[in-house]
């Protein structure tokens, strides 16, 4: 009887969350998979079932692979730098100074700003004619370094990655700050007494103890890197010559501009599978705490 009561209790408390999850996550996912099997323009109920043809076409689509490559650049370069700079900032902010407090206060600004605002502001900054970057270079007598930052294939993606880092670094600094503050001060003090240098303290104490934060940060970075859309769409619309197209901007093009809804949904499903695969791989890599293995 008590067991039955307990089951009922669990079901009662789980069901609202489960229901919401089913309606807003499981059902759309299932339906996306279903739509991706159709040739459907998304303007009427007319469509034809084509099995996996959309997937076959996507996998042979050069722009899809180019977009994926761009995502990986954003993820690897942008993701690595955003975490590295975030951690460095967090570490330097551990000592309370007036400058440090100021940085701490302003570093979250980009994070709380709407991405639309961020994109528009940076479009102005990078404007080839009146932008701060080119004007600054001209002032420094470096006119030969001026570029049409968002219009040239060689500079567009690095520019987008730069803005991506600018946006994200505050959040990661905050995340790592919280992690650093959780590390027992006595450990550091003890290591200092034992004669550990600053870098030894970081590699032997701080880095291993930041493991749970690093795990969260990595998953967050990966998911963010794969899902870049608004920044790209607003700043470059995927151009020049697909130079900044990402999986989601390419998906948007096919779904909402090219009127190939089935095809767009196939891209969405593949992106979902990729995100799931990468996230699970990270969980696998991080499955064992280094502290556990040290014991």
């Amino acid at each position: 009887m008590r067991r039955a009561e307990r089951t009922r209790f669990i079901i009662t408390f789980l069901s609202p969350a489960l229901l919401l999850y089913t309606v807003f996550v499981i059902y759309p996912l299932g339906q996306s998979l279903y739509i991706s099997l159709f040739n459907w323009r998304g303007v009427s109920k007319r469509r034809s079932f084509i099995w996996l043809e959309n997937f076959q076409k996507v996998l042979h689509d050069e722009v899809f692979w180019k977009s994926l490559k761009n995502n990986l650049w954003i993820l690897l370069i942008g993701g690595f730098l955003v975490m590295a700079i975030g951690l460095a900032l967090a570490q330097s902010l551990q000592r309370r100074t007036r400058g440090g407090n100021f940085v701490q206060n302003i570093m979250l600004f980009p994070q709380i700003m709407s991405l639309v605002v961020v994109a528009v502001v940076w479009q102005f900054v990078l404007n080839p004619s009146i932008g701060l970057v080119n004007s600054g270079l001209a002032l420094l007598g470096l006119k030969n370094l001026q570029h049409a930052w968002l219009g040239e294939v060689t500079t567009a993606l690095p520019s987008v990655i730069g803005v991506y880092i600018w946006c994200g670094v505050g959040f990661f600094a905050l995340l790592f700050s919280a992690g650093l503050q959780n590390i027992d001060k006595e450990l550091k003090e003890a290591s200092q007494l034992d004669g550990a240098s600053g870098s030894q303290q970081f590699t032997r104490i701080t880095w291993p103890l930041l493991w749970p934060i690093r795990k969260v940060a990595t998953i967050y970075t990966v998911i963010n890197g794969i899902q870049v859309f608004a920044l790209v769409y607003l700043m470059t619309r995927g151009g020049p010559d697909h130079g900044t197209d990402t999986l989601l901007s390419y998906l948007y093009f096919h779904g909402f501009e090219n009127y190939q809804f089935g095809y767009a949904t196939a891209i969405a499903v593949l992106t979902f599978l990729l995100t799931t695969f990468v996230s699970l791989s990270i969980l696998l890599i991080y499955r064992k705490s280094p502290m556990e293995s040290a014991r």
């Binding site: 807003f24 996550v25 759309p28 996912l29 339906q31 996306s32 279903y34 739509i35 040739n39 459907w40 998304g42 009427s44 109920k45 007319r46 469509r47 034809s48 079932f49 998911i223 794969i226 899902q227 859309f229 989601l248 998906l251 779904g255 809804f261 767009a264 949904t265 969405a268 992106t271 979902f272 995100t275």
Partner: peptide
């Protein structure tokens, strides 16, 4: 964000399968 994106894409799909689908299975 991806889940929301998928939801946006499938919002129209809801109409496809949910609103008394009389759609042709041919390629129109």
């Amino acid at each position: 964000k991806l889940l929301l994106g998928l939801a946006a894409l499938t919002a129209m799909g809801s109409c496809l399968v949910g609103c008394g689908d009389k759609g042709s299975q041919s390629n129109g």
